[in-house]
Design a protein around this nucleic acid. Structure first.
Length: 866
RNA sequence: GCGAAAGUGGCGGAAUUGGUAGACGCACUGGAUUUAGGUUCCAGCGCCGUAAGGUGUGUGGGUUCGAGUCCCUCCUUUCGCACCA
């Protein structure tokens, strides 16, 4: 055994052993329970970043642990290879996205392999290859047949200079990122997937996911946003007859209907457009609402503006005329694109009516008080109706129910459930994506591409230039025959949202190599994914789309599961220090922390620094997510080259619990490296004196017993931390404590050496999921000639080693710590109380005050209350 | 703006069910050993105080014998908001 720890030698050797043994390639095996462990697949951006290393290390630790526990473990890997960055790189470097993507995949795959992940590479998939995206197209057509895909207009960001659609990311402060032109909203036809049809199931089924974090389920539930409310019809004419036109609104507060003093419609609402036809000022206002981007954050934070359309509708119960306003905060995509305004009982309406001096009318008061008039703010709580004719005196809850019945009887509304969730628009006016399999024919309309013509292959040699989709300039792609009438026709040039690719890749891993079907029977062996791991930023969209997709596949008879991911772990971000300097031009330049001489204040906090190259001051901007724009990324490859994969893995797992953000620290990496060197040295010193059999029984002294107690307590804790708590930092800390205790055992008696052997073997087994290379090498020296460590089962706890005769209890007076005492393990409550009364510190602090009571918490503490 | 989280020493974090706050590691300080190969070992380390002791988990309040943990208030930071993935 080499007395020094040299990861650069060990790691490639160990990896070769695994590869030669095809150790991580799995097939369906009904003799063992299966464990499908999946980390979100990477976008091939160029090289791995620390977030990847963290993500895949967590998955690898769990995979290796479950393998040791006897599971048939599948851990696959693939590439989410369509998307915007490849087009941006193409514009910048004039290289086809396909070439750029392939090169990145090759490099990143080699990086993943050098980290020693237990991946079944024979199942690798890449979404930009036709053997994958063919099934996107095939399934799109099946959904089209079922009416789950439909065509509708949608709003996009439009750059009027480049004459191209922009992603939200490409809109910066309301301007196009390349042209700087003010962005406009534009309505274009798009294909939608009917996710709202599944809204209720997606919501209800969250209760069937105990393995998901509560916060993710809450976010999804809020995103779906089920509201029980009422649809209310406001007749256009005072003399309303059934069948006459009405303005439909949705409200969750039908009890406030008598307080409605006007209605507001979205600027795109037919009523607004109708009024604008004869009102140039209104037309200009609607035009102004079309400026700016489409994100909800932007819409919700913009100044609230509105304009009277001059039209009136009529209150469904009082028949009084109500003015129709149009306002930029009314969303066409929610409810009916119109709302009734009740300024007294809705904050937004209160502000708006104050701003434009619109009438107000109070109709709800608190349950046991009068409403203070005039109102200084909206009274939005539930309460009691007044000034509401037949509804006076009713509670909010009663009034809501009755209002639904009354309106239904009048034919002017009914109780209704709406969702905030919108259907999923999947059309993208972009090149680097999966082509939508549709052909447009002047005679037949939009014609689906017949199955036998799939896949519709994306030409992979085009180089986008930023001025729109290059497919539009590619006649060989564009011009086709109509499959129905054989006349000349035009191929659809929109591609699919990349969320389509990632909504079902986890199913395809189970069915690798099948070129005849999207999925086969193997999917029902491996699915659901037992453990899914990925960034918290995917808590809503990706995870919701995947759940939806699974349910649609189930309903089309392709699967027999309801939910794709049984257990979910959402890892936190990886952060690093940010340093920047304001240039004379006003622009801010960022610098990598490695280029800075960092300065600390007297408390040891970072206060600033100087750029090494010019010695001038830079500002410290705190910690932030590692990103290219902030220049604060750390290349995992540099860490692997310098300290080895095991150190990188150990640091990632030790420095933060997986769900929290992780702060990068070079010192922390060195600390992890030091621990591995220490482990290596302790093992070396032990092995140098000859290999012994591990402890298997016999008399032990108190020190040896204490060490075995600690060992088996640690075994228990580490298994719990890996398996149930998924908190790896505390597992490592526990092993460190164990090792600290072992290094205090210095006598060389046969019993001590046998216990030391037992501790070392188990330490290596416990750490092996995290630092598999070093542990495999150590295992070889501790147990020469045995099986590969990855095939050794997880150690069992020796319950006998955990038995204790005496325990320590903490003694408190009035909840304050005053001492401790040792008692027999089975001491009675009375015995403990009397021991506590006699405890010198208790008598000191109680003095002559009367003891009110004594609280005994078994196994923990005694609290004397005076 | 809306939704969701998180705030504990100089730093990362621990405290799993309301029961010893600060495990483990980093940084730092003192000592020993070795002068190399990111040395190793020993000791110390929340704050105030010589000590006894007091005090302490973002702010302010509450419940409890006992609160980092539960409830309310405010503040700050992070994530998401449907075309980044």
């Amino acid at each position: 055994m080499n007395p020094q720890y040299h990861p650069a030698e060990i790691e490639p050797q160990v990896q070769k052993k695994w590869t030669d043994a095809r150790a991580f390639n799995v097939i369906e095996d009904r003799s063992k329970p299966k464990y499908y462990c999946l980390s979100m697949f990477p976008y091939p951006s160029g090289k791995l970043h620390m977030g990847h290393v963290r993500n895949y290390t967590i998955g690898d630790v769990l995979s290796r642990f479950q393998r040791m526990r006897g599971f048939n473990v599948l851990q696959p890997m693939g590439w989410d290879a369509f998307g915007l960055p490849a087009e941006n790189a193409a514009i910048k470097n004039k290289v086809a996205p396909a070439k750029w993507t392939d090169d990145n995949i090759e490099y990143m795959k080699q990086q993943l392999q050098s980290l020693g992940f237990a991946i079944d590479w024979e199942r690798e998939l890449t979404t930009c290859r036709a053997d994958y995206y063919k099934w996107n197209q095939w399934f799109f057509l099946r959904m089209l047949e079922k009416g789950l895909v439909y065509l509708k207009t949608g709003t996009v960001n439009w750059d009027p200079v480049d004459r191209t659609v922009l992603a939200n990311e490409q809109v910066i402060d309301g301007r196009g990122w390349r042209t700087g032109a003010l962005v406009e909203k534009r309505d274009i036809p798009m294909y939608y997937m009917n996710i709202t049809k599944y809204a209720d199931e997606l919501l209800q089924a969250l209760d069937t996911l105990p393995g998901w974090p509560e916060r993710v389920k809450t976010m999804q539930a809020n995103w779906i946003g089920k509201s029980e409310g009422c649809e209310i019809h406001f007749p256009y004419r005072a003399e309303h007859k059934p069948g006459d036109p009405v303005l439909k609104v949705f409200t969750t507060r039908a009890d406030t209907l008598y307080g409605a003093t006007y209605v507001a419609v979205a600027p795109e609402h037919p009523l607004a457009l109708q009024a604008a036809a004869t009102n140039p000022k209104l037309a200009a206002f609607i035009e102004a609402c079309h400026r700016g981007g489409v994100t909800e954050a932007e819409l919700a934070t913009q100044e609230k503006k509105g304009m009277d359309t001059g039209l009136f509708v009529h209150h469904p119960l009082t028949n009084k005329p109500l003015a129709v306003w149009t306002a930029n905060y009314v969303l066409m995509s929610y409810g009916e694109g119109a709302m009734m305004a009740v300024p007294t009982h809705d904050e937004r309406d209160f502000e708006f009516s104050t701003q434009y001096s619109l009438p107000i009318r109070a109709v709800i008061k608190p349950k046991d008080a009068e409403l203070e008039l005039p109102l200084k703010a909206a009274f939005v709580d539930h309460g009691i109706c007044f000034d509401s004719e037949d509804f006076n005196g009713r509670t909010t809850e009663e009034a809501k129910l009755k209002m639904g019945l009354v309106l239904k009887a009048l034919g002017l509304g009914e109780p209704r459930t709406t969702y905030r969730l919108r259907d999923w628009g999947i059309s993208r006016q972009r090149y680097w994506g999966c082509p939508v399999p549709i052909i447009h024919c002047d005679w037949c309309g939009a014609v689906p591409v017949p199955d036998e013509q799939l896949p519709v292959k994306l030409p992979d040699n085009l180089v986008p230039d930023g001025s729109g989709n290059p497919l539009l300039k590619t006649p060989s792609f564009l011009h086709v025959q109509c499959p129905k009438c054989n006349k000349p026709a035009r191929r659809e040039t929109d591609t699919m949202d990349t969320f389509v690719d990632s909504s079902w890749y986890y199913l395809r891993f189970a069915c690798a190599g099948n070129d005849q079907a999207m999925v086969d029977q193997r999917v029902n062996y491996w699915l659901p994914v037992d453990q899914y791991i990925g960034g918290i930023e995917h808590a809503i969209l990706h995870l919701l789309y995947s759940r939806f997709w699974t349910k649609v596949m189930r309903d089309l008879g392709l699967l027999n599961i309801d939910e794709p991911f049984a257990k979910l772990l959402t890892q936190g971000m990886v952060l690093n220090d940010i340093f920047s300097r304001k240039l004379e031009t006003g622009a801010i330049e960022y610098y990598n922390p490695a280029e800075i001489d960092i300065e600390h204040d007297e408390q040891g906090r970072i206060s600033g620094g100087k750029l090494k190259s010019d010695g001038k001051i830079v500002e410290y901007g705190g910690m932030g997510t590692m990103s290219k724009s902030k220049m604060n990324g750390v290349d995992p490859q540099a860490i692997i080259n310098e300290y080895g994969a095991d150190t990188a893995r150990l640091f990632m797992m030790f420095t933060s619990p997986p769900e929290q953000s992780l702060e990068w620290s070079e010192e922390g990496v060195v600390g992890s490296f030091r621990f591995l060197k220490r482990l290596w040295r302790i093992a070396f010193e032990h092995v140098e004196q000859g290999i012994v059999a591990r402890y298997a029984g016999g008399e032990l002294n108190a020190e040896q017993k204490a060490l075995r107690f600690e060992l088996h307590r640690t075994l228990q804790k580490v298994a719990d931390d890996y398996g149930r708590r998924q908190q790896f930092n505390t597992a490592i800390a526990a092993v460190m404590e164990l090792l600290n205790l072992l290094s205090k055992l210095t006598d060389k008696s046969p019993a001590s050496r046998a216990v030391a052997q037992e501790v070392l073997e188990n330490t290596v087994l416990m750490l092996s999921p995290i630092v598999p290379h070093a542990c495999e090498a150590l295992w070889r020296t501790l147990k020469p000639g045995g099986a590969l460590l990855i095939d050794v089962p997880w150690p069992t706890v020796d319950q006998a080693a955990l038995l204790q005769d005496e325990i320590e209890l903490v003694v408190q007076v009035n909840g304050k710590l005053r001492g401790s005492m040792t008692v027999a393990k089975d001491a009675s409550r009375e015995a403990i109380e009397s021991l506590a009364r006699g405890h010198p510190n208790i008598t000191k602090f109680v003095a002559d005050q009367p003891i009110k009571k004594i609280i005994v918490v078994p196994g923990r503490l005694v609290n004397v209350v005076v």
